[in-house]
Design a protein around this nucleic acid. Structure first.
Lengths: 126, 126
DNA sequence: GTAATAATTCGTCATGTGGCGAAATGTAAA
DNA sequence: TTTACATTTCGCCACATGACGAATTATTAC
């Protein structure tokens, strides 16, 4: 992924060219999230969200770790490709104060408030 | 266009999510170009290129002026939206030395060398 | 082990998108 | 005016993509 070819750039631009994937990236701004928490905010089928996350991952725009049966996704750290990082910076700057994103943030706050650090199932049933 | 909403951002990301449109933006890096010159380099149907240019225009990623029956396209100047400008900066930085882009640059050089500042028809027949 | 659960993969469907040629538009040359 | 030409718009087709549910995988709970 650390190659700045047109192909790599297209992976990133295509990953960014979807409303739901942008929403996911914005949700991950300050914290990592479990897939079920993302599902709860976006209100999409688990399979759909999983597919979006795999596209973001292939573009180097998210990383993930597994913990038991849960998968936690986060924005890439310092080891990430320069193109990915600057793309993310651009997205965040462009969406400073968007209505949809703010609503998502509030939804996320409620999901997180339910029972932090506990099972996704419980968090999803807020 | 000077509004940083999700909708506007999506216009930009969708415009960037196509290989041919990226090639067009890179061709326009240092100069404005007539549509027929772009057609000559990309080797696509005029209607296809025109459609791409209108998508880029709607996203604020190119501007154009008409001169007689020719239309000249260029990257947006200082009056452009901040989101558009930073997107273009990101694209240019990401594609510093790509093979396809370099080949396009050489093709463009030949097209321009043919008969600069003269009719598109002649330039297309190099 | 068996059951339950989180996530992913797969198959399918509806819609979006990129490509072209034909027709339309607008301008310059004859 | 008539013709030629650059570009755009329109209609169509093939393919890509996003959505879902069902089936699968992997892990924990019983």
């Amino acid at each position: 992924m650390s190659n700045s070819s047109l192909k790599t750039t297209m992976l990133i631009t295509k990953a960014l060219a979807d409303r739901q994937r942008i929403r996911i990236l914005m949700l991950l701004r300050d914290r990592e999230l479990c897939v079920c928490q993302i599902i709860a905010v976006l209100a999409l089928a688990p399979s759909t969200v999983s597919k979006h996350l795999s596209i973001l991952g292939a573009a180097g725009l998210v990383e993930h770790r597994r913990e038991g049966r849960w998968a936690y996704y986060r924005l890439p750290g310092g080891s990430a490709d320069a193109a990915s990082r600057s793309a993310l910076q651009w997205i965040e700057a462009s969406l400073g104060r968007d209505k949809t994103i703010e609503i998502d943030d509030r939804k996320l706050a409620k999901v997180l408030a339910c029972d932090p650090e506990v099972l996704c199932r419980q968090q999803r049933r807020c």
